[in-house]
Write a protein that binds this DNA or RNA. Structure first.
Length: 423
RNA sequence: AGAAAGGUGGCCGAGUGGCUUAAGGCGCACGCUUGGAAAGCGUGUAUACGGAAACGUAUCGAGGGUUCGAAUCCCUUCCUUUCUGCCA
């Protein structure tokens, strides 16, 4: 959620920056300012009435105390209309506040200067590429064929017990998955992230805090009986651990990592591109989250990008980094870098990580603040990224590391797997 | 699921209708003290909104109500803890 005070001061700058998202925010911004003004006026009026009322109450109390009951009763009559007035004004204030909230919920975050213009993922800007794309032998297969050949992932079995998009991992496939989780968590904790295990269901307030609600309601599985949501990413429970907090500047930065399964309804996704592990309703992911001082969040984002790079370098996988364009940038994000792994057998890039800086956008919803050195309370900056999303990394390993003899496990993973070949 | 007890500031914790302007403690900041630190002593220290400011208003889980006046009384609701039941 954007900060009203900033919009009030800088409406044109906001409109201009938001135009990069190909939306015309001018009307909405005007409405925000109007609602804000109504809210402030209502509060001023209400405060006056309440101030009067408080003054009378105090006097009456004093009079009763000094035994002047008659005078007190006389004064009581003067307070008669105040209650009605304050009630009306209170309702007006509540309505204006709610109106303002609803308007603010509709405004996405402001893109960073470096975010390129563009409408879709085709306009994202490649900023880095590394790793050799392997020459595959004749008869090389896509990962879903490999999964069947070596009997390590069973998609049909998952369909039987749940439905499409819920694969069953088996034998060395399951072990490799577990190895990747441990490996990622170890890399993250070595880089200073504290490991957490968090709930996989969250309440409505948490969904609002990180911005999944209300805009992405349909993407989450909703357990209506208890009004809880299955998490689409660990970002939600991890970031919400800090909801409503007021921290000392000395506690920053806070760096967390956690492994969770992620559940996404992916309503409306069909076709060849969702085959195999490419798009699932349930998948595993290790996430990193940072709470940062505003002065430091830009550097922190670069640090997260570097961190994810080192993991992919160690896994010896070919990848590239994209700076998302305005049209592809997430609703809550200010600046996002996507990591894509080259899937050689499919001849396409697969997104395996998305690293974002949200500035105060999430913190404003979360009411996540810190007391700065100057004594001022300020909204913190939040950032998060995948390090990493499992299924597509798994797909990349299967496809890129396949040989006629079997799948050769990257060296870094062998100690975690306990084997160096799937055959 | 049933019963009981609770929800108070950054944290802990007192507080049963009007100097509560929320005691006390911890923490934090500054000062004194010290060769330096610790301890000790002193001073200060909630949040949000409105206001150029002075200042005002709100907030004791949330929402209503009673009252001139509510942390305090009443109703509704959410959550937590303990016990019982069920259960990995």
């Amino acid at each position: 959620m954007l900060e009203v005070a900033h919009i009030r001061e800088n409406k044109e700058a906001f409109a201009k920056a938001l135009s990069k998202r190909n939306i015309d925010a001018a009307t909405l911004l005007d409405q925000v300012i109007a609602a804000d003004e109504l809210r402030r006026n209502s509060q001023s009026q209400l405060d006056e009435v309440l101030a009067d009322s408080n003054k009378f109450s105090k006097e009456i109390g004093m009079l009763f105390k000094s035994g002047e009951a008659q005078k007190a009763n006389l004064l009581k009559e003067k307070t008669a209309g105040l209650k009605e007035q304050s009630k009306t004004l209170q309702e007006q204030l509540n309505a204006a506040t709610e109106e303002l909230q609803n308007l603010l919920y509709q405004l996405p975050n402001v893109p960073h200067d470096s975010v390129p213009e563009g409408n879709s993922d085709e306009d994202n800007e490649e900023i880095f590429r590394e790793g050799d794309i392997p020459e595959l032998h004749d008869g090389a297969l896509p990962h879903w064929e490999l999964a069947k050949k070596y009997d390590i992932i069973d998609f049909e079995l998952g369909t039987k017990i749940t439905g499409a998009g819920f694969p069953v991992y088996k034998g060395k496939g399951a072990r490799l998955q577990r190895a990747l989780i441990s490996y990622f968590l170890d890399k993250n904790t070595a880089a200073g992230y504290t490991e957490y295990q968090v709930p996989h269901l969250v309440n409505e307030a948490s969904g609002f805090g990180t911005g999944q609600l209300p805009d992405k309601e349909g993407q989450m599985y909703h357990v209506t009986e208890d009004d809880l949501y299955l998490i689409p990413t660990a970002e939600v429970p991890v970031t919400n651990m800090f909801r409503g907090d007021l921290r000392s500047h000395s506690e920053l930065p806070i760096a967390c990592t956690g492994y969770t399964p992620c559940f996404r309804r992916e309503a409306g996704s069909y076709g060849a591109h969702v085959r195999g592990l490419n798009r699932l309703h349930q998948f595993d992911k290790v996430e990193i989250v940072r709470i940062e001082h505003p002065d430091n969040s830009a550097a922190a984002l670069d640090g997260m990008v570097d961190h994810v790079k080192t993991i992919l370098q160690e896994l010896e996988l070919p990848y590239r980094i994209l700076r998302l364009c305005g049209g592809d940038l997430g609703f809550t994000s200010h600046l996002t870098y996507d990591f894509e792994l080259f899937s050689t057998a499919q001849d396409r890039w697969l997104e395996i990580s998305s690293v974002s800086n949200f500035l105060t956008f999430q913190a404003n919803r979360l009411k996540l603040r810190f007391k700065d050195q100057d004594g001022q309370n300020k909204l913190a900056h939040t950032l998060n990224g995948s390090a990493l999303a499992l299924p597509r990394v798994l797909a990349g390993i299967l496809e890129n590391c396949q040989t006629p003899e079997g799948i050769k496990i990257p060296k870094a993973l062998v100690p975690y797997c306990g084997f160096d070949m799937i055959d």
